[in-house]
């Protein structure tokens, strides 16, 4: 069976998904992902003309009241703790490298 997904496509998916892949992974995933994509194609056998998609438990959107709440009112989260997970910080900001390709960060 010819691969549904080529190694070039897997490379592109890796870039889109922000995953650095080794050449070995690219080959392996091309085969494995193709097998899954081939398998799920069986859904085309199911007639879904006019089928309306809704939440399966019958629940509909619930809107929260637009009311200000005190920090920690529902869930007590310390924002210093949240920030502490970042590898680099400057005051209360998270420091990141250059976004553009050519600019190499310090």
């Amino acid at each position: 069976m010819a691969s549904v997904l080529s190694t070039e496509e897997i490379e592109l998916l890796g870039r889109l998904a922000r995953l650095d892949l080794t050449p070995e992974e690219i080959t392996r995933y091309a085969g494995q992902l193709s097998a899954v994509v081939e398998y799920v194609k069986q859904l085309s056998e199911v007639n879904t003309d006019g089928v309306e998609v809704r939440g399966v438990t019958g629940m509909v959107n619930i809107l929260a009241a637009d009311q200000p709440r005190a920090a920690g009112d529902l869930c007590d989260v310390d924002y210093q703790h949240l920030l502490s997970g970042a590898p680099a910080r400057e005051n209360n900001f998270i420091l990141v490298r250059a976004v553009m390709g050519e600019e190499v960060s310090p």
């Binding site: 998904a17 892949l21 994509v37 190499v104």
Partner: peptide, 28 residues
């Protein structure tokens, strides 16, 4: 070197094979 590398290399090293497979399938 750039922000993209931080994403792509941290995820490549931090996530396992099955997670990567599903992330790429979903992206596709």
């Amino acid at each position: 070197e750039v922000l993209y590398d931080v994403y792509a290399k941290s995820r490549a090293e931090g996530l396992g094979a099955e997670v990567k497979r599903r992330v790429m399938l979903g992206t596709y």
